[in-house]
Amino acid sequence: MRASGLAFVALVTLVALVTLTACTGKPPSSDAITGGNPRHGLEAIQRYGCGACHRIDGVPGAYGTVGPTLQKIGERAYIAGKLPNSPENLQQWIRFPQRVVPGNAMPDLAVSELDARNIAAYLYHQ
């Protein structure tokens, strides 16, 4: 497909997404934009112990103050003060925080790709 054809397909897709959002009055769901499942994300957040360092609404015992609150993370412009806020960047940060910002306080926890998608879905779902 030629570049002009690809641009047309991208434009049609964007118009359809905007139209769908306008018709339903709701933005796409967190699971749709991340490819994850918020329910499984809650389980993963608890399993990795994210609440020891972060405040996370809806997660029992997640009142940590070492890291920033993760409330309304979808409304922020940047993740870790460095990455533009997108599902892909949030997942990268969750999986590889030391690669993104070497020496920061968030440890690499060997979070799987699937768990990162699910955690992102939960955080964007709030």
Rank of each mutant, 00 (worst) to 15 (best):
K82V: 11
N89Y: 04
D31L: 04
C23G: 02
E113V: 01
V12M: 07
G36P: 05
V66M: 14
A62N: 05
Y122E: 04
G61E: 07
I56M: 13
V111T: 06
R2Q: 13
P107D: 08
R2T: 15
S4G: 02
P28H: 05
G5R: 07
D108Y: 10
E75D: 02
L70S: 06
R55H: 12
P28A: 12
H54D: 11
N104Q: 13
V18P: 01
S29V: 00
P102A: 09
A116T: 09
A105D: 10
A105P: 03
L11T: 08
C50K: 04
G25A: 07
D108Q: 13
G5S: 08
M106R: 13
Y124Q: 09
L6G: 12
L109I: 05
S29G: 01
E88R: 15
P97G: 10
A44Y: 07
P87V: 06
A105E: 14
G103K: 14
V101S: 13
I119E: 06
N104M: 03
L83F: 03
P38F: 02
R76I: 09
G41S: 10
G64L: 07
E75Q: 14
P27H: 14
V15F: 04
L109Q: 15
A121R: 05
A77M: 11
G74M: 00
V18S: 03
E113W: 07
N85P: 12
S86N: 03
V9N: 04
H125I: 01
H40N: 13
Y48F: 14
Q126M: 11
N118H: 14
K72D: 15
A80N: 05
V66F: 10
R2N: 12
A120N: 08
I45C: 10
A77K: 14
V111M: 12
S29P: 00
A52Q: 12
M1T: 12
D108T: 14
L109F: 04
V12H: 04
A32P: 00
S30F: 01
A32K: 02
H125E: 15
N118M: 06
L70A: 10
V111Q: 02
A116M: 12
A44C: 11
P87A: 05
